[in-house]
Design a protein around this nucleic acid. Structure first.
Lengths: 153, 153
DNA sequence: AGACCTAAGTTGGATTTTCCAATCTAGATG
DNA sequence: CATCTAGATTGGAAAATCCAACTTAGGTCT
């Protein structure tokens, strides 16, 4: 992201995270990947991101190990590329969920939440909280469409 | 941030959060505010952010209710402005902590973590996890300097 | 008074990033 | 060999950021 080039600023975890996903569109691409999108045209059409920017962002995310570039072949078409979340990329759900939760509390809409954080198995609502390190807990979450959602999830 | 202007995209909590803190420097200003900084010159000098950009970001953060503009007066000086986190701004620690945790796991440095998430009272290490909604839990966290920290905290 | 100091903020112009529409690529099909 | 299509590239316009110099407005000093 070009922020804070001096060597000790880069030790900051927040700077290091923003360096990777702090540019415009990056986190929204990850969000849509979490929703299951994998193709260039899906990201471009659903987000409205300019295709040259999308090319650049996908490259950055692949280089950072957040997305993995694969090939797929639709019957009757040539081989094309698709982009899939890695373990690292999937773990960014933590950051996305934090934004969802903050927005629900401090910047809600009149429509209700568009996304709801839930237990992947029981679908009970969950929330992010600070727990003692090492205690058994869940780092898995499902992000389900809520009442404020218009999106095809 | 100008991303996704269409009406239903703005229902997304992630878009709504990025609209407020997704611009360059915004989250770093919040980070430094969490560290206790309040003054224009502190933000400018510690981050190296251009002063015109800082003016714009402080304005956005104040307008969004994340910072509150106050006056202070140093003995022998005239009245000046300072910027203080609101409850809403303090709650962004959740997002910052998520970035810290993600970076620790997937993008660590050789120096060890610069920041450590800890219980504000016991200083035991804590981590973000998904817990059942409504269960008793902590949303308080202290962000302490770790072994990788060079910053004057 | 008036010269000087200082934190906060503004201004003009260069640089960088983003945007947008048009174009290109390369294998598949008719 | 013309046509189709998802993925990508290109050139030029627009917007955001950067940078250094300057301004503001009250305070101190003499």
């Amino acid at each position: 992201m070009g922020v804070a080039v001096d060597i000790d600023a880069r030790r900051c975890q927040i700077v290091r995270t923003l360096d990777i996903v702090g540019e415009k569109w990056s986190l929204l691409i990850v969000r849509n990947a979490v929703r299951g999108q994998t193709r260039f045209s899906e990201f471009r059409d659903s987000l409205g991101v300019p295709s040259d920017i999308l090319t650049a962002r996908l490259g950055t995310l692949v280089a950072a190990g957040i997305l993995e570039k694969r090939s797929y072949r639709e019957p009757g078409s040539r081989e094309r590329s698709s982009y899939h979340l890695t373990e690292s990329g999937l773990a960014l759900k933590l950051v996305l969920a934090a934004m969802v939760q903050w927005s629900d509390e401090f910047n809600p809409t009149v429509y209700g939440p568009a996304s709801i954080l839930a237990d992947p198995e029981t679908h009970e609502k969950v929330e992010l909280a600070f727990v003692p390190m090492g205690d058994p807990h869940s780092d898995e979450v499902a992000i389900l469409p809520g009442p404020g959602s218009l999106a095809t999830w």
